[in-house]
Design a protein around this nucleic acid. Structure first.
Length: 444
RNA sequence: GACCCUAUCGUCCAGUGGCCUAGGACACUCCCCUUUCACGGGAGUAACACGGGUUCGAAUCCCGUUAGGGUCGCCA
């Protein structure tokens, strides 16, 4: 069954994928998937001066990362290509001639302008309702230019031509285009084409309400990739900006969102971006990620941090006990590194705090002896051994815990101590305890 | 400046005339859980921009004001 629904994301390659653009792409994609329609990627690269191949790649990478696959477009083919505007010259020329022949165009200093129909144009918008725009006054609504003197094309014209040629059924785009829409409608009319349905979605602003620019935190999708967000969390967060399932649910899987998504649930108020909530969502998604997938997502970060983790078999149990502590994948290396090297660093503050008691060295000595006797190196038995040591010392188990943790890891915070000791293995634990007594405690 | 859109806790959303002494989430504070750090559980702080209408009754409808955003390019 072929759905007549065809939507497109039409970014201009500016060198980065803006979070607002990503959200627009997401809404288009969700709409297409919900209705079993087609999602098309079209690159609007008419401005030769600004466009580069690398800039296109950034968009492709960002979309791939977010999991927004396109049915037609660069790398995907399709019956309505090419999908770069720079390669669609013949189509623009054709429609240009149509307008010219019908007397809609006139030359102005070498450029070509479209003579406005000078009417009241009503935009029927799925999210904003019906809005009248009075274009009758040339003073306030000058004729738009559609072609530069050098022959290159202007956005409004090529955008409309492509939407016609690609048989786009619904245009879902940022609200910044709402005021442009009556002009586009005039073009559709002059070209004798039926316009698509429009849905203008609210913009994403900084938390303080100012316009988000490239430099602002959270503005670039590449930033999320690099700082350790998982795509499903970013998708989830973005889907909640300007849309909601209306039942107060927030933690949603992609499948649920596709199922629930509906243009009628899109609101009209600009959203202020809040990185804290995105971060929270990230920790929630990370906690639910299957371990093998979590491992795959961690590996690039471990590699970048220079952690030699050996094998997946060695890494998995550690990730298992450490993942609940993590909000960003970029935090993983610091939680994991001391499992893989014996020259781990001792945090001076931790040392001071944990080894202050002068009896610490003796206590750790006794604990080591008790560990030595452990018949099997399992968390439960390790715990029993530690408690027994505490009893012999007439101390509370708590008094041994922190020194042990700091001795084997160099820091005060970490995963469950006994699980950690089990994974480290008896031999390494004993040598680390001895080493800590020699190099740290005796230095105090 | 003209035109357009918007207006509920600091932020994201719920709320479409009575169920609202306005609900959920993030953040923040406190408590519990706990071997650290987290997770988790519980509690708390906190909003209908303002002024007029309409109505028996308005966060919800209308008008105005104010504020924010957008468009008005030979950028997209």
């Amino acid at each position: 069954m072929n759905s007549p629904i065809r939507v497109r994301f039409a970014p201009s390659p500016t060198g980065y994928l803006h979070v607002g653009g990503a959200r627009t792409a997401l809404f288009n994609w969700l709409f297409a998937r919900h209705h079993a329609g087609k999602f098309i990627l079209r690159i609007e690269d008419t401005d030769k001066a600004r466009n580069t191949e690398e800039a296109v790649q950034v968009i492709l990478d960002g979309l791939h990362w977010l999991g927004l696959d396109w049915d037609e477009g660069p790398g995907a083919g399709g019956d309505f290509g090419p999908y770069f505007q720079s390669q669609r010259e013949h189509l623009y020329e054709k429609h240009f001639q149509t307008l010219l022949a019908a007397g809609h165009l006139y030359e102005d200093g070498g450029a070509w302008r479209f003579r406005s129909l000078r009417q009241v144009v009503t935009v029927h918008d799925t999210v904003c309702g019906s809005i009248d725009f009075d274009l009758s006054n040339p003073e306030t609504h000058p004729d738009m230019t559609i072609r530069r003197p050098d022959g290159s094309w202007i956005f409004h014209f090529v955008n409309v031509v492509d939407d016609i040629e690609m048989q786009i059924s619904h245009v879902i785009r940022g609200e910044d285009h709402l005021s442009n829409t009556p002009k586009h409608l005039e073009l559709f009319k002059a070209l004798g084409a039926t316009p698509p349905a429009y849905a203008h979605i609210p913009l994403i602003l900084n938390k303080d309400g100012s316009k988000m620019s490239k430099r602002d935190a959270g503005a670039s999708i590449t930033g999320y990739m690099e700082s350790g967000y998982t795509p499903s969390a970013v998708r989830n967060y973005l889907s909640l900006l300007g849309w909601s399932p209306k039942d107060n649910r927030e933690l949603l899987t992609l499948e649920e969102t596709v199922d629930l998504f509906d243009l009628s649930k899109v609101n009209r108020k600009n959203a202020h971006f809040d990185i804290d909530k995105c971060l929270w969502l990230n920790s929630q998604h990370l906690a639910k990620t299957p371990l093998t997938q979590f491992r795959e997502e961690c590996i690039p970060f471990l590699a970048k941090a220079g952690v030699h983790y050996g094998s997946a078999e060695a890494l998995d149990p550690i990730l298992e006990i450490v993942r609940e502590k993590i909000k960003l994948l970029s935090e993983v290396p610091s939680w994991v590194e001391y499992f893989f090297k014996e020259d781990y660093a001792f945090d001076p503050e931790a040392v001071k705090k944990a080894f202050a008691n002068p009896a610490t060295a003796d206590r750790i000595g006794l604990l080591s002896a008790e560990f030595e006797e452990c018949p099997e190196w399992k968390a439960g038995l390790i715990e029993a051994a530690l408690k027994q040591t505490a009893a012999k010392l007439e101390a509370k188990p708590n008094e041994l815990l922190l020194p042990t943790r700091v001795a084997v890891s160099g820091r005060t915070a970490g995963p469950n101590l006994f699980a950690m000791l089990e994974i480290l293995g008896k031999g390494r634990v004993l040598s680390r305890l001895k080493n800590a007594v020699d190099t740290q405690i005796h230095q105090l």
